[in-house]
Design a protein around this nucleic acid. Structure first.
Lengths: 263, 263
DNA sequence: TCAACTTATTTGTCTGACAAATAGTATAAA
DNA sequence: TTTATACTATTTGTCAGACAAATAAGTTGA
């Protein structure tokens, strides 16, 4: 009884690579990312195709049975996937109707998954613009709050990530420290509603870094701007912190414009 | 064959009110809100108990079979409910471990459902404070953006809801117009990432109105403040719009403090 | 013309089974 | 005694098939 391995009935599932024999007639039409659970993969696949505009708002998705056939999965797996999409307000389901794509303004765009799917959307440029504008709304005021409310521990994290930026040996490490810096400021606001926006800001930054190649001079100047923010927060000067962040953002804009004038 | 009504096997489900006969031994320990689907109700029940701190971050929830027994539902229903909670980053599930409650900073607090559950949490006061602070971050800058980018149609909606506030016959209708006014401003930013924050702001406002009883004098002054915002946006004066919103928020703070000095 | 009924389709729910992952325990080896 | 290995038990993950409930659309009757 070492290995039970009944191995019957369960259809032997996918074995994604070695799909040599087309079995009966159920050759999966859509292939899933092997990583993770099946329902997660299905949710990602459907979610991406929705936010990328493959299914228009208000239109009806294929029914669960169709998805199940296409993915070579069970209806249960598809249903759990769709429940995930419902939770993120991408679709609503009703009996006899099916699952309808919600209007874009209902989507939980600030959700980490939705945002990452959306960032692969056709209109990357517009998305990037919205993200940068979003930073202008959030970050200056967040820095001001951080200057007022930060704890010693939170300040230490801000200072450390700022110093890590300056001393990072590789560009990749510098980038990571940069993200940590901005997240640390958000956390230092001690406002539980602002912290979740960190995921959005982080996404914005990561998208940014893809676009940008900086010169040594750029990097040095950007570091100065970061140092100014760190100092203003440390000295508990909200107005100065706000202004310093605005300067950094303006610099980001300038660098973006220089690197991709199309925007 | 008019009505099939096999009526066997399916356990005849809940019949929530008239649960007279304890059947066999499966008397549901937890009663669900009758409204809506079973999985939604379960998600709400579990979600609420998580955000209200009944299950601490990092702890393991009862397993699916236990929930199913407690709710008198099937494991499928429980699983779909938990998928919803996973999508909102309240829990993560792994085989053999179970579903673990995520740390609070992972929660999608800006999600409409999570926010509404959370607003019933024990620390209402702190939550209210965070919300009001959040408005200080978002709304002034949003108004400035709206002043710059609004379309005629969007401006019409802002003006209409502002006028509706002034002429509303009942307090309830005034409140609704008030919410519409702030949502309209967010929409008029034409920033797709700011619009989802509307749900959060709306929740803040609704929580606010519960706390507050206004005098006629208060209402009149508040109306003036709203009119100022409307005018600044209409005349495309971003700085004036920003300042006008800040004044309104300061007034909100004052009224809150007057009505419940405990805060 | 319009209302009531019927039908077909789709999601919602239940049941029961097996697969996969893995923490904890027991066992064997060094 | 300590460490590595194998086993076991538990829990989520997935599958299959059935029936319930809701309802859009078509059909019939007044």
């Amino acid at each position: 009884m070492a290995t039970k391995s009944k191995d019957v009935g369960q259809s032997s599932s996918a074995t994604p690579e070695t799909m040599l024999a087309p079995q009966t007639q159920t050759a999966p039409a859509l292939v899933l990312r092997a990583r993770g659970n099946i329902h997660s993969s299905i949710a990602e696949a459907i979610g991406k195709s929705i936010v990328c505009g493959e299914y228009k708002s208000g239109s009806i998705l294929p029914n669960e049975a169709k998805w199940a056939k296409d993915f070579g999965a069970s209806r249960s797996a598809v249903r759990e996937a769709i429940k995930i999409l419902m939770a993120k307000n991408l679709v609503v389901s009703r009996p006899k109707i099916g699952s309808r794509v919600e209007p874009k303004e209902h989507w939980s765009l600030l959700d980490h998954d939705v945002l990452s799917w959306y960032s692969r959307s056709p209109d990357r440029a517009g998305f990037q613009k919205s993200l940068q504008q979003f930073r202008y709304v959030i970050e200056p005021e967040a820095a001001a709050l951080a200057a007022t409310f930060h704890t010693d521990e939170q300040m230490a994290e801000i200072s450390k990530s700022c110093k890590d930026m300056a001393t990072a040996p590789t560009l990749s490490e510098r980038t990571q420290a940069d993200v940590r810096f901005h997240m640390a400021i958000l956390k230092a606001t001690n406002n539980e509603l602002l912290v979740p926006l960190g995921a959005t800001i982080a996404s914005a930054l990561n998208n940014l870094f893809v676009f940008i190649t900086r010169t040594a001079h750029d990097l040095h100047y950007a570091q100065d701007l970061h140092n100014n923010i760190e100092r203003a927060i440390r000295l508990r000067r909200p107005a100065a912190a706000r202004t310093a962040v605005q300067k950094l953002l303006a610099n980001s804009d300038a660098v973006i414009k220089k690197n991709s004038p199309a925007l």
